[in-house]
C-alpha cells in the first residue's frame, strides 16, 4: 500500500540568563581579552570555565583567578563530516587546560592544516602547548577565543 509521511521542523527561541558568574567571566573576556577561573576554597581547585559552585563540595566558589593565555591540549577531535545545524567541516576542537586552571575549557583549534586528519592529529596531540587567541571584535561568548598550537 502507499505509505505517507509528513515533514515538520521545530524552531524554538530561548533567551537564557547566564547568571552572575558567567556574566562576570564574559565581561572580562569581552572588554579586556582576559580569561578567569574561580577557586573552590575547600578543595583549592580552580574551575575554568568558572562555575558558581563546586560539583565536588557544593560549596560556593570564592576568588577569581586569572588563567592562561598559555595552556596545553587535554583532548581534541577533527570533524570531517557535515551534520545538519552544525558548522561545515573540517574543523578541530577540544579541551585545553589553561595555565593556572585545574579543569579544561572547550574551544576551537586553529592554525593547523586539517587536510589529512591523521597528520593533523599529531599536531594536536595531548600535552601540546597552545596559545589562546582573541577575536578583535568580541561579544562576550565562547567563540571570542580559540587556541593555536605553539611550535616546539
Amino acid at each position: 500500500m502507499e505509505l505517507l509521511k509528513r515533514q515538520e521542523t521545530w524552531n524554538i527561541t530561548y533567551t537564557h540568563a547566564l547568571g552572575e558568574t558567567a556574566s562576570w567571566f564574559y565581561v572580562q573576556l569581552r572588554d579586556h581579552a582576559k580569561l578567569y577561573g574561580k577557586r573552590d576554597a575547600k578543595s583549592g581547585r580552580v574551575l575554568v570555565p568558572p562555575r558558581a559552585f563546586s560539583d565536588q563540595t557544593l560549596e560556593p566558589t570564592t576568588d577569581w583567578v586569572e588563567v592562561g593565555p598559555g595552556g596545553h591540549i587535554e583532548t581534541f577531535t577533527i570533524v570531517t563530516a557535515a551534520f545538519n545545524g552544525l558548522p561545515p567541516p573540517p574543523y578541530a576542537f577540544g579541551y585545553v587546560q589553561l595555565d593556572g586552571a585545574d579543569t579544561a575549557i572547550g574551544g576551537y583549534f586553529r592554525g593547523v592544516d586539517l587536510t589529512d586528519p591523521k597528520v593533523a592529529a599529531k599536531h594536536l596531540a595531548i600535552g601540546t602547548r597552545v596559545m589562546t587567541r582573541f577575536a578583535e571584535k568580541r561579544t562576550g561568548d565562547v567563540l571570542d577565543f580559540w587556541f593555536e598550537p605553539q611550535p616546539g
Binding site: L18, G19, F93, I105, G106, G107
Partner: peptide, 18 residues
C-alpha cells in the same frame, strides 16, 4: 547553553574525545 553549546559538541565528538 552558557559555556559549551556554541561548540559543535555531539555524542560522536564527545566519545571521539574519550
Amino acid at each position: 547553553p552558557t559555556y559549551e553549546r556554541q561548540l559543535p559538541l555531539g555524542t560522536i565528538t564527545m566519545l571521539a574525545m574519550s
